[in-house]
Amino acid sequence: MTDDALDPLIHAPARLRILVTLAALNYADTLSFTRLQDMIELTPGNLITHLRKLEDAGYISSEKTGKGVASQTSVALTNRGRAALEAYTRALRDLLSGL
């Protein structure tokens, strides 16, 4: 097994950290953009770029609540994203056990 077996969308430090962090939440819970940024320690623009890629793939969902300056974005791992992360973790474990 080679690195090619690893989902390239997940196999990136920042996105991997984003997905693992969101997976630590209870099912059906969401995490605010601000809190996620604090935990992942990325700049807002960088985080948005990675979140968009994950959302386009259906791995996360985002929801904007409130209006104007009080608006807040929350993100959550989707079922598809959870399954993709589990598949990535299994593939990584298989790859490492074969090394």
Partner: peptide
Amino acid sequence: MNEPSDTHEAESADEGG
């Protein structure tokens, strides 16, 4: 999603290559 002023900053080399 929120649109801060640095949205277009260059992506880091954080693409896992």
